[in-house]
């Protein structure tokens, strides 16, 4: 129990707050809102399932050599299609069978992971940077800047995403990863810009921003210290959920022959090729398609978990 002798005003609040606070400090140290979000996240099975999947996928993307020694580009026509998957030959080149040109499907699936993840992460990073920056400028400064950026956003938003990207990509003959990333970013930044703009507008109206302004804080300080940290959550949520979408967009483009170009390895290209012989050799389609679905699923699930943790109101 607190001592009762302290009757000064300075101590009044403490005396009563003490008993409850002793317990409080023991079980929880200073907890930031990010810390709270992490706490929420840690308590979601969905987060752990997607996290484990993503760790494996990232490992595959970073070190494909760890998972297979086979060369995904080397075709041996003796293996051509005919050998069916040997489902017991774990991690062997013939685990998933061979494709039409006698290349190991397992090796191709493994080596294709890097490009898919690179495109997904690359587009998300670029889109978040570009859209986030434009949205922040529009939301924070308002006025003419806002009008110009918002109209620009509307114009880009009006262009059909896949169609527009295809038109852009058609101009390139050698389509490397960065080309696809740039093409998807070119039309993909609008939704992030919109979300960021509105959350920045909400954040900048808060009293603590006014308080900083009253103290004479600089624009950079208000923007990066007060507005941005409080406006970031919705942007992160939208970006995480969109990541899976970019991966499937890349596969779609590759399927249509407008994504990555050979000899780059991509699930989309494999799906496209396998679809030609789907009746006799469905397995050639199943494995790359399955990997794609699993990856997109993992990212979307992560996005959902992040949203629930960062923005409980949206649930």
């Amino acid at each position: 129990m607190p001592d009762t002798s302290s009757t000064t005003l300075t101590a009044t609040e403490e005396t009563a707050a003490a008993p409850a606070d002793v317990v409080k400090t023991e079980q929880r140290k200073p907890r930031s809102l990010w810390g709270d979000a992490w706490f929420e996240l840690r308590h979601r099975p969905m987060f752990w399932v997607s996290a484990i999947l993503l760790v494996i996928l990232l490992l595959i993307a970073a070190f494909p050599g760890l998972f297979t020694s086979a060369d995904p580009t080397k075709g041996d026509l003796t293996n051509h299609f005919l050998s069916k998957p040997e489902l017991t030959h774990f991690f062997q080149p013939d685990w998933f069978g061979y494709d039409g040109q006698g290349r190991s499907i397992y090796a191709r699936v493994i080596h294709g992971t890097r490009n898919s993840i690179l495109v997904g992460v690359g587009v998300t990073a670029a889109v978040t940077f570009l859209g986030g920056l434009l949205g922040m400028l529009a939301g924070y400064f308002g006025g003419l800047i806002d009008s110009v950026i918002s109209r620009l956003t509307d114009i880009f938003f009006g262009i059909p995403f896949l169609l527009g990207t295809m038109v852009v990509l058609n101009a390139f003959t050698d389509r490397k990863v960065y080309v696809v990333v740039l093409a998807l970013t070119f039309l993909g930044w609008t939704s992030i810009a919109r979300v960021t703009r509105s959350s920045v507008i909400t954040a900048k109206q808060a009293d603590y921003v006014t308080a900083a302004r009253a103290l004479g804080a600089s624009t950079t300080r208000m923007l990066f210290r007060h507005v941005m940290p409080n406006a970031l959550a919705p942007t992160i949520v939208v970006a995480t959920i969109a990541l899976g979408g970019y991966i499937s967009a890349e596969a779609t483009l590759s399927y249509l022959g407008l994504g990555l170009s050979e000899p780059a390895i991509s699930w989309g290209i494999d799906i496209s090729e396998a679809s030609k012989a789907i009746r006799d050799n469905p397995h050639a389609l199943m494995f790359p398609a399955g990997m794609l679905t699993l990856t997109v699923f993992a990212f979307i699930m992560l996005g959902d978990a992040v949203r629930d943790a960062l923005d409980p109101k949206l649930r």
Partner: peptide, 8 residues
Amino acid sequence: AIKGLPPN
């Protein structure tokens, strides 16, 4: 002034 705060 009533000292302290309403309880948690």
